[in-house]
Design a protein around this nucleic acid. Structure first.
Lengths: 211, 211
DNA sequence: CTCGTAGGTATACATCGTACGCCTACGAGG
DNA sequence: CCTCGTAGGCGTACGATGTATACCTACGAG
């Protein structure tokens, strides 16, 4: 055999992910098409299939690329424990916020990302430091992860995340008194503060007495 | 004009939603097609467009149908406060769990559902009873909603929600020690208990001192 | 009975993911 | 240098999808 390297060319997975991300940032998820990504790489659509199996794998690459930028180093140990956890969650949230259109893809492909593994390991380290082990640590992680993913969905899939809240404040006069009132208050809250605030409530619960 | 009712026929929005849900339950989201839903109704695909504007509206109908079954009556006031909130969240979770394949559609169309409005109003009532008002109530609602939506995503979009956790327990031997350990523990936890447990942590934080 | 309207359908089109088969560039072996 | 096998790259094509358009038709009001 003359086997080894007959034609070692062109693309790296990273360049592909990068092109796909460019397309998504520019045209949104609906513009995220095999043909569009190929065009972004100045290739034919089918050429992509020399590097990936199918659309699913492309999505996976995009999610991994978005999440790979996350800094997973443990924050300064001198910070209060809650502040350190908050920092880590904020980093993940910020990574997604930098490319809002990929938000719906994150929950689907999250578990295949090495970055997420590292991030989770770091978070677990912090939880362990706080004295959480065994089942309590599992529950704490699940609660944090649930809150994080849910918050991301709420921010990027909501009724345009603010316009709808405004509508709620108008509508529902006496049929939904609490709702109308809450929506009115919510309009004045900064999204970052809202994320941090909800998280703070959760963290307070995590560190309560071990039953 | 002879205007009023020239031909008053066939379908109600509810029958349409019902047929769509049948299709989704049987064939999953990928089988959820205009043609498939039409076939389920023994009609041509285009006939559907006499009743709905586009696919998006069909999705909305499905989500509304799934969520409409939720019991939004306030639970027995003799129950502890946390138990009452838990009950309401469980109801929403159960409604989605009854049709797992629609889970990805829920965050997208949630805000247009009257059932969600009523449900939210009830939850807000409970939060108010617990002494939460103003910003604190907004944050509490957001945290609960985030946790709920996130938990639903985690359960239905995970790595087949269990198989992946198992894989994590095997993999990642010394590279991710905390993770491997946590995954091993997680395998023995019932999903319902996990949901309730994480929620309990959050609720504990909600009722802590008002800063 | 008639007639206008809304119900229902058939057909058609653009766009999507991707299977298939063909050329071609290029690195290794002579 | 030539040649040759392999993998890169492309053109075409197919089935599926959402939906626009134009048509026929059943039916209730007059």
């Amino acid at each position: 055999m003359s086997s080894d390297m007959p034609r070692p060319r062109s693309l790296t997975p990273d360049r592909i992910a990068s092109a796909a991300l460019t397309v998504i940032d520019r045209d949104g998820l609906t513009g995220f098409t095999m043909r569009a990504v190929a065009a972004e790489l100045a290739m034919s659509a089918m050429a992509l299939y020399r590097y990936i199996d199918d659309r699913g794998e492309l999505e996976r690459l995009v999610v991994e690329r978005v999440l790979d930028g996350i800094d997973v180093s443990p924050p300064d140990p001198k910070l209060p424990w809650a502040a350190r956890v908050t920092l880590l969650l904020r980093r993940m949230r910020a990574a997604v916020a930098a490319h809002p259109a990929v938000a719906p893809l994150v929950p689907v492909h999250r578990h295949r990302s090495a970055a997420v593994l590292r991030w989770t390991e770091t978070v677990l380290g912090l939880l362990t430091e706080a004295g959480l082990t065994g089942e309590r640590r599992v529950l704490a992680l699940r609660a944090l992860l649930g809150y994080l993913l849910g918050a991301i969905q709420l921010e990027h899939l909501g009724p345009l995340a603010g316009a709808g809240t405004a509508a709620l404040a108008e509508l529902a006069p006496q049929a939904y008194p609490h709702l109308a009132d809450t929506a009115r208050t919510a309009r004045h809250i900064d999204p970052d503060a809202e994320f941090d605030g909800g998280l703070a409530l959760l963290l307070r619960g995590l560190t309560a007495p071990p039953d």
